[in-house]
Design a protein around this nucleic acid. Structure first.
Lengths: 212, 212, 212, 212
DNA sequence: TATGAATGAGCCTTCATTCAT
DNA sequence: GATGAATGAAGGCTCATTCAT
């Protein structure tokens, strides 16, 4: 992620740098930092250093720390959503689709754990900084809409009972929050959690009520 | 929340009680603050003001902000665990017990939402402050042990397939994290999420796979 | 102005200090600094150092740099106005009163040049920071009222022609601005300027129009 | 204020003229900015943006912000002085000349208020930045010399009493400082102040001392 | 037990300036 | 002649913490 030569940087424009590259690097580095340590604890200096620049240079790309956070959120949300959409493209039926999403989720967590972790962290940071809500709600809404549509299609195809629409939606939200917030540390842990959710959705997590 | 007037009479309650009161107040106030805003964003001044004292006075009760946080964690964990233990006392069978825990969880969220919210927030704060890990792991372990024992008993009674022990444990962890982190804002939302988890555990969240 | 022992200060409350004293010192030191260098150029660190404390300690007394500035303005305005009022107490007639004010002005400039210089500097800083206007206007109004009343009394006693009320007021304002902004550096220069204004008011600055 | 489109034809105005235009624009824009907000508060970016270029481009015309300020001062002083000199060309006698200067001053304030305001602001900025003193003193001296010569001629023609030379000079300085610093905001206010000064010089600002 | 005065470290941000292009 | 990317220095302010009282 960093710029290679560490302390050789001097005043003025550095030779042979691409602005877009630097922006991308900042976004990636910041996502990881925000995911790991949250908005408050992450400092501009940390992000900058990891991106191979100075804190002041950050302001060349983003007008403030909050704006950077919002940009990271937008970027991440967009990427994750694109993957989800692509994952269910050739899949039909509610349960298969949810499973496809969970699998894709696991695949992404494998490639770059900071994606899911960041999205999990956002929930917390938003709760702690009510000002964020407004700035992020546009992106947030896109994801909500996606899941709503999955469930709604399940209702239409008969997979999900109409009366259980809200229930299922709540389950998806709760479960995905738990997955991103608590279980994305190790690959094995994440895989296990994904399998557990799948089993629960299929209805065979525990033995078929032997008490009844 | 604020402390009563100090009695000037020589007889009566010993001063020690006053001190214990203040400590209790600080703990309660701090739990709410940490739950709402997290460790970083919450300032000593806020806690102190809400407890009716000055920031400096905090240091008579806890040697540092971190120690206060740990104390709050210990206190909260203890109280929640006690409620959980009591909730399953007269219940047998894995699913009924899990349901009892979920119900108790909902009841507690109703009485004092800061309990669950704090426990949800801890997970995040610990991840963000590696120093916390060591200090909290003793308390954390107690809760883990509790859930492990629930599942293990389920295995023994045959409710939980032995091969699925880890899976079920992961499900409980994921699900409870999601519940405390994401769904404890409104009572209705929390109730719905609890019902959703119960349905999933019972295996009738969605229609019995018509595709199969 | 400063606290004596320079680098002996350590953490915690310093022994034997009076809060009111420190506040007074800050006010005095800040007045001089703002007068000399203006609001922008003066740093909290400079003020603090000259007052024998750290920049952070400033915030124990004033919530922000702007509030400190406003407090200095209030304090200075109050002191100067009190002196002016006292100076004209036993004097009657417009010209004698204006002369009394000019003399008092000179005396004050001699005792503590920062008083007048600060008031001169304020005009500039307000023009440069429109946000200040609101904060200072209450104090400003008191001084304006004072001068207006002097002129108005002159009108009543017949010293000032009713039709020239605005003209005289403008002269006083222009002249006093010039005095505080431009001529308060050296005592001799200030004295000369005061005499010049007096002569102009008396009408014998230059020879009685020999051209006419 | 903005620069015309660069002509791409090989014939026509040499590029040097374009450059001179830009320089002129910068000077004008900077004068207004420095006059309004002073040296400190005005940023290179503001000046550049208003001149239609980038901050870095400023450095092709002036080696530093301070040099730009000095250049603006030189330019402004020169222009104002030229107008003053021209204003008194056909006028003789001290009072008439001073009145001519005041009138011209008012006319200039009407045409471009930034001229007078800048000169008023300089006094303050110089006091706040001792480094300026040396750089500006050459220009400053020209203006001083001009006023000195006016007064000296008054002495020679008998309009000004020889013993009052310094007094009159001080009056002119005080009064002009007050005019530029405090009264150049509105045209009406400026006009009134000019009339007030004239009246004072003529000796009929207030009624002829009835107390004497 | 509690307060009030103070510190030191650190944060976000701004700004004049530099240099490769 | 001009831009865009970057730096280093500094500034206002906040905060956990300390210590005399």
């Amino acid at each position: 992620m960093s710029r290679g030569k560490k302390s050789t940087s001097r005043l003025g424009r550095p030779p042979a740098t691409d602005s877009a590259d630097t922006r991308r690097t900042i976004l990636d580095v910041a996502r990881a930092a925000f995911a790991d340590r949250g908005f408050e604890v992450t400092t501009n200096r940390e992000i900058a250093t990891e991106a191979g620049i100075t804190p002041a240079a950050l302001y060349h790309y983003f007008p403030s720390k909050l704006d950077l956070f919002v940009a990271v959120h937008h970027d991440t949300q967009e990427r994750v959503l694109a993957r989800f959409i692509q994952a269910i493209e050739d899949v039909s039926g509610f349960v298969p689709r949810l499973e496809a999403i969970l699998d894709e989720s696991h695949r992404m967590n494998n490639e770059d754990p900071s994606l899911a972790r960041f999205l999990g962290a956002v929930r917390v940071d938003v709760a702690r900084h009510p000002e964020f809500e407004m700035a992020l709600q546009v992106d947030q809404a896109a994801m909500d809409t996606f899941f709503r549509s999955i469930v709604d299609q399940g209702v239409e195809t008969g997979d999900v009972d109409r009366s259980r629409r809200a229930l299922v939606l709540s389950f998806v939200a709760t479960t995905l929050t738990g997955l991103t917030t608590g279980q994305s540390a190790s690959d094995r842990q994440h895989a296990l959690a994904v399998e557990a959710i799948k089993a629960a959705v299929r209805g065979d997590l525990v033995a078929r009520l032997p008490h009844a």
